[in-house]
Computed example of a mutant assay.
Amino acid sequence: MKLTNASIITAMVTPFDEHGEIDFSQLPTLVEHLLGSHTDGIILAGTTGESPTLTHDEEITLFEEVIRIVDKRVPIICGVGTNDTRDSVNFVKEIAEMEGIDAGLAVVPYYNKPNQEGLYRHFEAIAKASDLPILLYNVPGRTVASLDVETTLRLAEIDTIIGVKECSGMDAITELVEKAPKDFLVYTGEDGLAFATKAIGGQGVISVASHIYGNDIYRMFQLLADGKLSAAAEIQREYLPKVHALFSVPSPAPVKLALNELGIHVGGLRLPLVACTEKEKEQILSILNL
């Protein structure tokens, strides 16, 4: 299944039980909630899914379960990138053999601080390891190293690299939309830039807030498509304080808090992440109107 019609992709949380194990029993409720709120695609084992604390075997079982639940209704993208090129290549080869995975999400290598040539070669190796389509993930706030636009454009020439989740700001997004091949998918990874990205011709948003506000994002994108900029902008303005609340403490603590409040039981977080304090809970839920 291709991503060309996917404007709202949710970077899905991983539900945990009271012992900190993946709560597979909650996956159907969570997935159906997302699909019922205009999620066009799901990312598994991304940052929001707490990938740094998931084991290899947990990730594979998570992928298998969500593939079964989704049953080809929307594309599934799985986190494949680490800061070890060899490990990433091996993992891509493994999951490319799994039926039901539509793309891999490969993050800029963290901690190592590679230069642009190192980044190019890292992603080139991942992309050429299999036929699985790859989305690049540039998030310098977490990785320190950052993909320059010029490097992303070089990588966009590789057939299996189909797009980017860009978190370095609107200048980079605008330049990529202008200069990349027309079929290259440019997503913002920042919920607060969803309106601007869509308005300048980007594909859409890879979102955390869509766990709670998927219907609002959908409505905003529909209004933009209809040329009703003022009405769409009003949604973005109302939505922005809620986005800020969802990132007021390290994610995904606030979105898990909100989901639990809505009766979608996703549990807590794995260390080193911690749940919101009582004061934080009160402030966040007040802003979210939950």
Results as ranks from 00 to 15, higher is better:
48 T>V: 14
217 I>Q: 09
253 A>Q: 01
254 P>S: 12
167 C>P: 04
163 G>K: 01
269 L>P: 01
130 S>P: 03
39 T>L: 12
7 S>P: 05
85 T>V: 13
77 I>M: 14
7 S>N: 15
271 L>K: 09
263 G>Y: 06
15 P>K: 06
155 L>W: 08
275 A>M: 10
198 K>N: 07
225 A>F: 07
168 S>M: 11
204 G>D: 04
246 L>I: 09
50 E>W: 03
27 L>I: 06
230 S>L: 13
9 I>L: 14
62 L>Q: 05
28 P>T: 12
39 T>C: 15
188 T>E: 08
236 Q>T: 07
25 S>T: 15
257 L>M: 06
202 G>P: 06
171 D>W: 11
100 G>A: 07
247 F>E: 07
75 P>S: 04
199 A>W: 05
166 E>F: 04
107 V>H: 06
161 I>G: 00
171 D>K: 15
214 G>E: 07
43 I>G: 00
53 T>Y: 06
84 D>C: 15
248 S>D: 09
95 I>Q: 00
169 G>V: 12
17 D>E: 07
127 A>K: 02
230 S>Q: 13
252 P>A: 11
104 G>I: 00
277 T>E: 03
277 T>W: 10
261 E>P: 04
285 L>R: 14
206 I>E: 02
161 I>K: 00
111 Y>C: 13
194 A>R: 03
134 I>Q: 00
50 E>I: 03
237 R>T: 12
77 I>L: 10
61 T>Y: 10
50 E>F: 09
236 Q>E: 14
22 I>S: 00
130 S>W: 05
242 K>V: 09
180 A>R: 04
53 T>I: 14
136 L>T: 00
195 F>D: 02
98 M>G: 06
269 L>N: 01
23 D>Y: 13
136 L>Y: 02
259 L>H: 04
139 V>M: 12
16 F>L: 12
107 V>K: 01
221 F>P: 07
98 M>T: 15
268 G>V: 03
117 E>K: 13
200 I>W: 04
251 S>P: 06
190 E>Y: 10
247 F>P: 03
51 S>F: 07
41 G>H: 08
200 I>Y: 03
232 A>G: 05
102 D>I: 01
189 G>T: 11
141 G>Q: 12
124 E>V: 04
134 I>G: 00
133 P>D: 08
68 R>N: 14
219 R>S: 14
43 I>D: 00
123 F>L: 04
50 E>M: 05
51 S>V: 08
167 C>R: 02
21 E>T: 10
141 G>V: 15
55 T>P: 03
108 V>Y: 00
